[in-house]
Design a protein around this nucleic acid. Structure first.
Lengths: 160, 160
DNA sequence: ACCTATAAGTTGCAAATCGAAACCCATCTG
DNA sequence: CAGATGGGTTTCGATTTGCAACTTATAGGT
């Protein structure tokens, strides 16, 4: 298990909380996964996801508000928009990869429905934690969490 | 942007969908983050998260149902349980790391509230995609998604 | 025996959110 | 002018949420 610092909710954990405020509902990540795959228009998304139109509309505007997607006109008369990933949205890629990986590992019997492969050589890629100074892989139990700038020594918690 | 295959919803994307069925609500990931940090009891979680007791109760039993957490008795008379991560639950660690990382990168002005460091040397760790055969880092735009076993050549989508 | 405290829920009910279908608007095609 | 297309908004019943109060089980004190 990962040894993490004891919680002190005001300063800490807000990263997850802020993240969840943006993506934690049944549809948002599915919408984003589709945008990653090139499904960018209202109708395409609606057909592919089988989501209610009002909900899709609401989620898209929230994603635009949160600067995860941006509306890009693709025709005039009448003006119609596509939804493209912003830099912030594209940066959700690792999270999407991680969640997809978990689903693959625990919710498929045989092959995963989709594998991500290294374009140059065709090998399936893996997601790992690395230590930039040791240049080696770090396993989950070899990490410790530490407050960013307060120099509080975390009263080290016992493990399970 | 990541080049991904066109969607064909029945076979594909179910990994994300299955994952979202488990974790996609406002509280579940916060609960799990706390369990990762050693907060395992009902009352502790309730106090730390400021979550309604009925919702917490509901989420915990769903997580137990989904085999992400398990109830472990820590006293008898009256029997009380702690919630521990199963292997499946612990395997959510990369996803949690990725989501926390995104929040850190986009929702904090200065230092991130919490950094994950390599226990052995104290260096902050990074999460990367790697190609096991090239033994090199793979950037998000260098990956392609591919159906797991059907040999369908994805009609390569134009990029943005 | 009685009172209080601790831990972990459950229940009741009002308020917010969701979802399916219908409706609206602008424009192009026949 | 009658559809068709694309992208929504509105309406309204069903579901989910959240707060507060209640319950159960047990230990400790007086």
């Amino acid at each position: 298990m990962v040894a993490l610092a004891p919680p002190h909710s005001e300063t800490d954990g807000c990263s997850i909380q802020a993240t969840l405020a943006v993506i934690s509902d049944r549809w948002t990540l599915l919408i984003l996964r589709n945008v990653f795959r090139g499904v960018r228009r209202f109708g395409e998304m609606q057909a592919d996801l089988d989501i209610a139109r009002n909900i899709l509309s609401d989620r898209l505007s929230k994603l635009v508000e949160h600067d995860v997607l941006e509306k890009v006109p693709y025709q005039h008369k009448p003006t119609r928009y596509e939804y493209h990933l912003t830099a912030k949205g594209a940066d959700l890629s690792p999270a999407l990869v991680a969640l997809m990986g978990w689903g693959d590992r625990w919710y498929t019997d045989g092959q995963p429905p989709t594998v991500l492969i290294h374009e140059a050589c065709g090998t399936p890629v893996v997601q790992r934690l690395e230590c930039p100074s040791c240049q080696s892989e770090v396993l989950p139990h070899q990490i410790r969490s530490q407050p960013g700038f307060e120099l509080v020594s975390p009263t080290s918690e016992e493990l399970s």
